[in-house]
Simulated assay, not measured.
Amino acid sequence: MAFLPEVDDPSNCLITFFCPCVTFGQNAKIIDRGSTSCACAGALCFLIFNFFYCSFWYTCTYRTKLRGLYSIPGDQCRDSCVHLWCEPSAFCQEYRELKNRRFDPSIGWVANEEQRTWRVGIVVPPSVPGGMIR
């Protein structure tokens, strides 16, 4: 693993460099399928980091969840190490993984679901009048 993330999304790299909790919050919202808000996850990450200096204990659980959702090989020990030693790079990696799975973490869960529904083009079958007639 390289120390610096690939710069295929420079805006995400800049946001993660200056405000890593924003990227974490965006990732968490998608990984939790909208049950966690971006602001809540990001604020909790920020508070844990600033008061206890060990936000990796919290953030690495989302990497483990992401691996579990998509059957990505690895283990929780590696997840903890990655978040301990290069947390911003881990956030960028997780963001890129979600983008590769056709999610856009920057727009949130609801907007992603709307886009997925629109792309699939749900077809409603025609209604049948009444019951069966002989």
Results as ranks from 00 to 15, higher is better:
Met1Tyr: 07
Ala2Met: 09
Phe3Arg: 10
Leu4Thr: 13
Pro5Lys: 02
Glu6Ile: 09
Asp8Phe: 08
Asp8Tyr: 10
Asp8Arg: 15
Ile15Met: 13
Ile15Asn: 06
Thr16Cys: 14
Phe17Val: 04
Phe18Asn: 01
Phe18Ala: 07
Phe18Glu: 01
Cys19Ile: 07
Cys21Leu: 04
Cys21Pro: 02
Thr23Ile: 06
Thr23Leu: 04
Gly25Gln: 00
Gly25Leu: 01
Gly25His: 03
Gln26Gly: 00
Gln26Ala: 00
Asn27Ser: 10
Asn27Pro: 06
Ala28Phe: 05
Ile30Lys: 04
Ile30Asn: 01
Ile31Asp: 04
Arg33Asp: 08
Gly34Lys: 07
Ser35Lys: 14
Thr36Tyr: 11
Thr36Pro: 00
Ser37Pro: 07
Cys38Trp: 03
Cys38Lys: 08
Gly42Arg: 01
Gly42Ser: 03
Leu44Tyr: 13
Leu44Ile: 14
Phe49His: 15
Phe52Gly: 02
Tyr53His: 15
Cys54Pro: 06
Thr59Ile: 05
Leu66His: 06
Gly68Lys: 15
Ser71Lys: 15
Gly74Val: 04
Asp75Arg: 05
Cys77Arg: 12
Arg78Ser: 10
Asp79Gly: 01
Leu84Asn: 00
Trp85Leu: 15
Cys86Tyr: 05
Gln93Trp: 11
Arg96Pro: 03
Glu97Pro: 01
Arg102Ile: 01
Arg102Gly: 04
Ser106Gln: 03
Ile107Lys: 06
Gly108Ala: 01
Gln115Asp: 10
Thr117Pro: 00
Trp118Thr: 10
Arg119Cys: 08
Ile122Ser: 06
Ile122Met: 07
Val123Leu: 12
Val123Tyr: 09
Pro125Cys: 04
Ser127Val: 13
Pro129Asn: 04
